[in-house]
Deep mutational scan, measured.
Amino acid sequence: VTTYKLVINGKTLKGETTTKAVDAETAEKAFKQYANDNGVDGVWTYDDATKTFTVTEMV
């Protein structure tokens, strides 16, 4: 189990959260659900070296 981080660069919501998951795919599903629940829709990137997902909403 690995800890993954999500950085949110939203128009109205900004911040970070973490989740523990067995792999990046599982973490991504959890983060996308979290973003969807919070009304964040944007471009996703993932950095495997730092285990960090970033979602950026276009203005």
Rank of each mutant, 00 (worst) to 15 (best):
V22C: 04
E16L: 03
E25Y: 15
K20C: 05
D48Y: 13
Q33K: 14
E16D: 05
K29D: 12
A27D: 00
T45F: 09
K51E: 06
V22L: 06
W44H: 01
K20N: 13
T54H: 05
T3N: 11
V7K: 10
L13W: 09
G39S: 13
E57A: 04
Y4L: 00
L13M: 13
D48T: 06
A21M: 04
L6Y: 01
K32V: 14
D23W: 04
N36A: 11
T17E: 06
T54P: 00
F31R: 00
T18G: 04
G10S: 14
T50G: 07
D23Y: 07
D41P: 04
E25H: 14
Y46T: 01
T2G: 06
Y46A: 01
V40Y: 05
K32S: 05
N38F: 10
V43Y: 07
F53Q: 00
G42S: 01
T19M: 12
T45E: 10
E28K: 15
T12G: 13
L13K: 04
F31Q: 00
G10M: 15
A24F: 11
Y46F: 06
A21L: 03
G10V: 15
T12I: 15
K5Y: 06
N9W: 09
E57I: 04
Y4G: 00
E57C: 03
A35K: 01
Q33N: 12
D47E: 08
Y4A: 00
Y46M: 02
K5D: 02
Q33P: 02
V55D: 00
A24R: 14
F31K: 00
K32H: 10
M58G: 12
T26I: 06
A49G: 13
T52S: 07
V7I: 08
T3V: 14
G10F: 15
G42T: 01
D41H: 07
Y34G: 01
E28M: 10
T19K: 06
I8A: 03
Y34Q: 03
T56W: 10
T18N: 05
Y46Q: 01
T54G: 03
N36I: 12
T26D: 15
D41V: 13
K11P: 15
T2Q: 08
M58S: 10
A49D: 09
I8K: 01
V43A: 11
F31A: 02
Y46R: 02
G15R: 15
E16S: 06
T56K: 06
D41I: 11
V59R: 03
D41W: 10
T45K: 08
E57R: 02
N38V: 12
E57M: 03
W44G: 00
T17R: 15
V1E: 09
E16H: 04
N38G: 06
V1F: 09
W44M: 05
E25A: 13
F53G: 00
G15A: 14
A35S: 08
